[in-house]
Amino acid sequence: MRPFEYAAPRTEAEAVGLLAAKDRQTEILAGGTDLIGLMKQMIVTPSRVVNIKEIPSMQGVSQTSEGILIGAATRLEDIARATLLAPYPALADAIAGIDSQQWQAQSTLGGELLQRPRCWYFRSGAGLLAQNGQKVAAGDSRFHAIFANSGPAKFVSATRLAPALICLGAKARILKPGKEDPESDDPETQTCLVSELYRTPRDESQRENVLSQGQLVTHILIPHGKELANATYEVRHGSGPEAPLVTAAAALRIEAGIVTDAKVVLSQVAPQPWNSREAAESIIGRPVDLVTAEEAGRMAVAAASPLKDNRYKVQLAAVAVKRAILKAAGQPTGGI
């Protein structure tokens, strides 16, 4: 690990000022479960680390006129326990899958959403795109993307909570540095959909999210009016907090036994969370049962483009979608 400056601001504005420093390479420290490892490996080498976990306004879950507001520095175990979030079991499902008391107690919502990809070429220092995608294409791609992988980015998005939040139409509140003097001007607020936080980088200058230096996700809002039956289903090789093989979340409006609205989002399958319109459309207008859920799973992977080592993930993605839909509808998922 390289030496670095450490700052622990108490306000969001202070944090943005510290993060926006022109003469510093800055990183946001939340729970640290990902960043510390990356720094020890010197994959990221910030000259300043800004701890946002001690900013009171970024903590906790509250009811607002627009919906449920979750501070980005709220710990995962507090989200899993929050009674206000009881209508959104897809979140608790995903957190339960991060199967480690230490991780649940230490990790934050913002950190979970913006953790870096687990690609072993990236993690060994070859860069996020690992020589413009060549290392993955020639190398071992058993855990890499099965969608949107024709460009240089072949890693998979690591977040496990974004599928649930995207299904629920969640928005991210982003604080940006002021235009004139980023370090002292009042920061500006911007809101975007959680799905819009992510992008598929085209070159090494880009990250897998749209935030530029100094920008801070302070809150996630789950808007009212999206009271859909929802669930997350993950295919995990074993217990423990490690990356699952596939994450799928489904949110369904079921009226008189028929699905009238649906959203299906996956993670661990593409460089960013993967919204499967095909799966959602296939279930709309039908009842949820084994046949229709399985059909949705098949539709979810119809356009999959596996790499040489990860064809099995296509099957896993189809099963995860099927089981997420069944789970959201309160039906047995099967499996072990």
């Binding site: 490892g37 199967d99 687990r118 072993w120 070429y121 993690r123 060994s124 190398g139 071992d140 090789h237 074993g238 217990s239 423990g240 490690e242």
Partner: peptide, 15 residues
């Protein structure tokens, strides 16, 4: 390529 505890899979008590 999997020479870290995060990538080198081992069973947990639940397994």
């Amino acid at each position: 390529v999997n020479a870290e505890l995060s990538d080198y899979k081992l069973p947990r008590m639940g397994d």
